[in-house]
Design a binder for these strands. Sequence first.
RNA 1: GCCCCCAUAGCUCAGUGGACAGAGCAGCGGCCUUCUAAGCCGUCGGUCGCAGGUUCAAAUCCUGCUGGGGGUACCA
Length: 582
Amino acid sequence: MIRDDLAERIYKAAKKAQRKGSLPKTEIPEVIVERPRREEHGDYAISLPLKMIADVNRALKEAEKPRLSPLEVAGRIVHRMVEAPYIGQVEVAPPGFINISLDEGWLAQQVEAILSVGDAFGDVDLGGGARMQVEFGSANPTGPMHVGFGRNLVLGDSLASLLAAAGYDVQREYYVNDSGTQIAKFAESLYLRYCELLGREPASESGLQAGEIPEGGYQGGYVVDWAQALVTAEGERFLEMPYEQALDQVREKGLAIAMENIRRDCERMNIHYDEWFSERSLYDPEAAPELGGSIFDRVMSILREGNHLYMKEGAVWFNATALGGDKDEVVIKSNGQPGYFVSDIAYHYNKFRQRGFEWVIDVWGADHQGHAPRMKAMMEALRLDPEQLTLYIYQMVTVVESGETVRLSKRAGTQVDLREVLDDIGPDALRFFLVARAADSQMDLDLDLARQQSDENPVYYVQYGHARIASILRYAEEQGHTDAGADVSLLAHPSEMALIRKMLELPEVVHTAAERLEAHHLPHYAQDLAATFHAFYRDCRVVSSDPADADLTKARLRLAAAAKLVLARTLTLMGVGAPDQM
RNA sequence: GCCCCCAUAGCUCAGUGGACAGAGCAGCGGCCUUCUAAGCCGUCGGUCGCAGGUUCAAAUCCUGCUGGGGGUACCA
């Protein structure tokens, strides 16, 4: 990448200046190459001289030599710089910057370079093929997916795409929480509604009261709908069997409906998982025959052997505080049921020890942030490096409708379904909206505003750019133009150069976004790129009817094709469609 | 109380310790007889929450304060 190469050249130039005696031998800080805001400062700016100046003058004073200005330091570094084909102008600017512009002849050739790389343009090698997992979107399968979870889905999926582009071998996984208290409550609620619809009393041993969703149960209207589906598909047969058996079967049916809903929503969001991992399998000895028992059994014995467990008040606790956690955590509840935390331990044992992921990212909402310290303690207990697990926390989405904050609870049935919003504003606009905000700032989703502004969503601006290029290419073909034998060195117009420059930023954006786990850079770059294309469109006629322009037309068709490719890649990284027509 | 995140234009938000703080939307004024006007051009709009500190340089780092969100369960 140009940015890294430049950094190295500057570093070497500074070293050489020191060797040749034009600069004193001070320590050279890391060379940071930035993209200046202002055009007249070139394509890249280096402020190294300013960072060095204090040390340099201190050393000069000790040697009883005259002081230097940062500008002079910059000049002496530049003097030792080795040329490169991509380097155009190199300037020093007050107070002590080194500004570098790309060579325009080289820039023009990059159109061919981009086209030859094709769909892989934008890829960088940060990961070196390391096997990793992004686990995201793992909503409890006890109801339809809530719109707030859309943020989880979109951030997780875009991160996965970014990391794949950055050279990691990425696996996308959904953790199906198909065991535990929530599922049990959900099954009871569903069973109760089922009885109601059939006008029957719940089985006496259920302890349920007709018409009364139990404490902590699910009140949402969808439970009635799903119960109705059970009635339609299964009739009354669940009432003709013992309660325990009926509850089991109702739970399985309910789970299937919930998962089908979730899968459908993911499909619509253009999210495709490699694996749907069942929590229940952690307790199933047959799921891990090589362990000679369940994964749960295995981690319990590891924890026991590591002296991480103790008894208190009838429950088994994990001693997280001894490993730097903030508080201890219940592993086996006093009723004998395993708590969620032990599932997490078993799950991560499976991820790292059985499946061998080198790096795992769990995408969590801020409402789960309290678990982070215990998760790190868990890694220690499993004798794993805590650095291998990244807990990626995003702040909550609050939904505002008619000027009021909607209280969101799946159990109370007051949530806004993801599907509703998908129907309103569509997946592309929703994805773009959700990915555009940094994960650590909370966001308000004003549904009225979102509906009203869905036509104004910047995603269409970007997609329109792509469609416009497609249209130009179609038109060119109709007019009998091809880009065969094009000579891209004819490209020299400032708007052509600007477009090529912008395209070349994609690898840097991918690098930065992947390194910092910040997907929100993508939509901002996409808008920039589209704007640069629209400016090119304004200034440069691509398909000319004048035979004298035939060569330029060919060159510009190549440029347009490259721009189309880069726009499409950027949209794809966000999971947003790149239409050829609007 | 303690822990985490946030506060930048009317609104929604970008902004690697660097040069005059940006974008979209909203507002105002222009531009279609040639490849898509879902576009382009111009204009209006800022005590970067407040107060200190570090630095040659702070929206950015540190401390305190104010305001908002989340957490602090044998729920997940």
